[in-house]
């Protein structure tokens, strides 16, 4: 066998493995979307039919009406928007302090904060749940927003970027009598737009997908977020899988679209978490 033929075979194998892997990854997404367009008879066909006889969005409207998904969506958006604004404020201020200001106990404090990243959040939920009960915050927006307003990982990530900005810029600003806060707003934030966008997107995704905490701290239907609404919908609908799949799409597709447009930022942020450990 000559070299050329060997290369062709190697290429076929290479792309073959990648394509099979990609199909395995995409399969649940495709199956979700295809199932969401089937009729109940098609869902219950044995053997299963792969493609719906006609592509209709009827299941989406039926599901949307069968449960208050509009309300769930609004709740999810409220929690996501307010939590993300809060997280950005705490993160930017703290990262500025660690990267630029000098204060007693700085090193010890940073080490302590980094150590808290090792604590599994599952361990904290018990007491935080008790705290919510004592504050009478159960079934409120603040219960879903406030406990997660600070993230050590984001603070650490942004501190690294803030620290890369040369001292000269800060000293020049000082000469111009630019105060620290103004310097942060006018110079640091615009220069670090990239990492701040990354943090925003990662935080939006984690809010959108969060499930356990909203499940613990909300009771009423009016306060449910999308993920909790979806599992309730599944319980109520039982085996109407065409509707359950349509409802799953409501949760999955918006993030999928956001990911397609902003994947550069997401991948960068997650890679950082891997490299920094």
């Amino acid at each position: 066998m000559n070299r050329k033929a060997g290369n062709v075979i190697a290429n076929i194998l290479k792309y073959g493995v990648l394509i099979i892997g990609a199909l395995f990854t995409l399969m649940p997404f495709l199956w979700m979307i295809l199932s969401a367009m089937k009729t109940n008879a098609e869902i219950r066909a044995i053997p299963p039919v792969f493609f719906p006889s006609k592509f209709s969005l009827e299941n989406f409207t039926t599901a949307w009406k069968a449960a208050p998904f509009g309300r769930y969506l609004v709740n999810t958006l409220i929690v996501t928007v307010f939590n993300t604004i809060g997280v950005l404020i705490t993160t930017i201020l703290a990262a500025f302090a660690f990267a630029r200001l000098n204060f007693p106990g700085k090193k010890v404090l940073l080490t302590l904060l980094l150590a808290t990243m090792m604590i599994p959040s599952e361990m904290l939920l018990i007491t935080n749940f008790i705290t919510m009960t004592k504050l009478k915050w159960i079934d409120t927006y603040q219960a879903m927003i406030v406990p997660w307003l600070a993230s050590v990982f984001y603070i650490y990530l942004l501190t690294q970027f803030f620290a890369q900005i040369p001292d000269a810029l800060y000293l020049a600003a000082k000469v111009d009598k630019c105060r620290d806060f103004k310097y942060l707003i006018k110079i640091m934030i615009p220069i670090n737009k990239g990492p701040i966008t990354t943090i925003t997107i990662l935080n939006v995704i984690s809010n959108w997908n969060s499930f356990v905490w909203p499940l613990l701290v909300t009771n009423s239907r009016e306060m449910r977020v999308l993920s909790y609404g979806l599992v309730q919908f599944q319980t109520e609908e039982g085996s109407a899988y065409e509707l359950i799949m349509a409802a799953s799409c409501i949760l999955v597709i918006p993030i999928m679209i956001m990911y397609l447009f902003l994947r550069k930022y997401i991948i960068e942020g997650v890679t950082q978490s891997g490299i920094k450990g």
Partner: peptide, 25 residues
């Protein structure tokens, strides 16, 4: 494509997997 599952809601896609695993359909 390969990174897509990371950003997807575990609850939603888990429900889809539940449907894929369904023993009859």
């Amino acid at each position: 494509i390969f990174f897509l599952p990371y950003v997807t809601s575990t609850i939603a896609i888990g429900i889809v997997w539940g449907w894929i695993f369904n023993s009859d359909y």
